[in-house]
Nucleic acid binder design. Structure first.
Lengths: 340, 340
DNA sequence: CACACGGATGATAACGTTTTCATGCGATGC
DNA sequence: GCATCGCATGAAAACGTTATCATCCGTGTG
């Protein structure tokens, strides 16, 4: 009979029931040192009987080394975010780590610090910050020193190690593609943070500059595709717009809807290119041309990097994933070219 | 100068530097007992200087009460899954808890048990299982006794407390709606697990039975919208199909694409209704009629339930969220009615 | 036969924090 | 003016586990 009904069994209870010492039970559990078959079986039987389960806190305390990776993100449900987290989780699980998710909702320093403190109140081995938005930037800035931290971002940054998903190159590829089709210039509906430092907007601008094309006013949308829809309604009235690069596929789909409602034909009159490779983009009519980004892979790389930091090892060579232009139905030559 | 560069500072280091006892530092940290202003300031200064950060494992060990909630899920990126996790995370963070995510990849007992053991090797207060698929069912089954666990599912189940998202009612609502429009019957493309116990398929069947309508063969698709697309290609050839209820919005969009390619008009010839309320569904052409489910709310409810279990409190009254039929462009009366 | 050796085992220390208990001290009540 | 009380503080115990060290026993070697 267990000594106390209310208390969860501890290793001492197991040892007592099995008639062995506490360290022997521990040895059976960890398998670090051989234990005679007879005792091992007695111990296992006692564990079974008591429903014993080692206390993780005590384990973590003595081992000093933690096996939890904290992920800080401004959101979890957006396509790129969710996929990156998936990559982190998968790599972590395979390596025997567990991931903790904490959403950074605001970007004012106080709230961010409070949220980070909550996350870091638990024993974490390292931190991965999804630096895709202002909240992510604030999180990186608010990280206390001494904690291994890696940022995942669309472009390289300073302060902490960055694992990048080369957004700049990706946006240049997409913009170049549209220019080569004959478009005079390419308009751009950007996701937040697009202002100055977003890799996507930077790549778009750089490609236009290199081609000496006119650089139109950047249109900033939020994350909500409806905002791109609203922008699209006004864009549909303009006949100087023949190609639009969107900051992500959701925005592109919002834009497509607006153009459709206004009777503008895609790609005959206007070409639309999205960003990310959202699976639903392929099922639109017209199917969305996009730049596929390997978010899962960047998540895996971030995990490897943070583990290397923990172990003070040399980080693995940080190949940034190659973006892939996926040409589908929503892009083509501009109307002028067609008329020729 | 800190004593050792390599070691992270502990509470003893703070106490030494501040010239107070260890418990006093602890009292400053927890605020449980008043400390004289002078000492409090010395302690805070020492903490600042050392960059001290309390060890969560030691805290968890002594307090006995953990503040980590483990979430077990078959996937994280699918719309409903991601939103449920979002709801859990939000509620948890506000209550001072942190969530750990672990994906259950396979559904064979061995792998599942191993994954759960990995998750439970950490100090967790309770577990929430997303029982939306076979992996989730396997996880619930493999949970060791003694751990507070709540399942989130589309229909009520046994064994552990369930927080439900009344899929059955939702599917009945959608099916009734289509029948009332005049459709002779409603076809159904189901998500996995649809076999016998899925609430969605059950509701669809029940509504047809109640209306004494013919019950067509259920078509089972995976989670990939392309499978619904494939099914749609064959469905487009049949003229006995006038209404299709899909197991989720992604499948519905795959179906819409197939019908569009085959030149079948929606909703004039065929009505399509999705499930979940995916934001992109509203931007399709035609905009997708769907049954919106409040996943975020079910996540919140699951969290409250598991916290109640931990504290042995009476669980909050478990109102199952009311599904909401969102009628958009993809559904309408059947062709016969229109001809009249 | 004495001795070293190796393998299994138990006693004890250690991890870093909070809680409990005891102490000293100034203020208060009779 | 003495006993009592409350308050801030420090010493020590406690949480549950693993690591370290010593011990014991059996075996092989000289």
């Amino acid at each position: 009979m267990p000594r106390s009904v209310s208390r969860t069994p501890a290793i001492t209870d197991v040892a007592k029931l099995a008639g062995v010492s506490v360290p022997t039970v521990s040895r059976v559990l960890t398998g670090s040192v051989p234990v005679s078959t007879e005792r091992r079986e007695r111990v296992l039987r006692a564990i079974q009987e008591l429903g014993y389960r080692p206390n993780g806190a005590a384990r973590a305390l003595i081992k000093g080394h933690q096996s939890v990776i904290a992920v800080l993100a401004g959101a979890t449900t957006r396509y790129g975010y969710a996929l990156t987290i998936q990559g982190i989780e998968e790599a972590a699980r395979l390596a025997g780590y567990i991931v903790m998710i904490t959403v950074i909702e605001a970007d004012d320093p106080d709230t961010v610090t409070k949220t980070i403190d909550l996350a870091l109140a638990n024993p974490v081995a390292g931190v991965i910050v999804l630096k895709f938005d202002p909240a992510g930037i604030a999180a990186v800035r608010a990280m206390p020193p001494g904690v291994p931290v890696v940022a995942v971002a669309g472009s390289r940054g300073s302060g902490v190690p960055h694992v990048v998903l080369d957004d700049t190159t990706a946006a240049m590829t997409a913009t170049d593609y549209l220019l080569q089709l004959g478009h005079r210039t390419v308009h751009h509906i950007a996701v937040p943070l697009a202002g100055r430092r977003s890799g996507r907007s930077a790549g778009w601008r750089k490609a236009l500059e290199r081609a000496s094309a006119e650089i139109p006013q950047l249109m900033e949308a939020g994350w909500d595709p409806h905002q791109a829809y609203e922008i699209g309604l006004t864009l549909a009235e303009r006949d100087d717009v023949t190609a639009v690069l969107c900051g992500n596929d959701e925005l592109a789909i919002g834009l497509l809807r607006a153009l459709h409602e206004k009777g503008r034909r895609v790609p005959e009159e206007i070409s639309v290119v999205g960003f990310d490779g959202h699976p639903l983009g392929a099922l639109w009519s017209p199917a969305l041309t996009t730049v596929r980004q390997d978010f899962v892979d960047v998540g895996r790389r971030a995990f490897r990097e943070v583990v290397a930091m923990i172990g003070k090892e040399q980080p693995p060579q940080n190949s940034s994933g190659t973006p892939q232009l996926v040409i589908r139905e929503s892009s083509g030559p501009p109307p002028e070219t067609r008329r020729r």
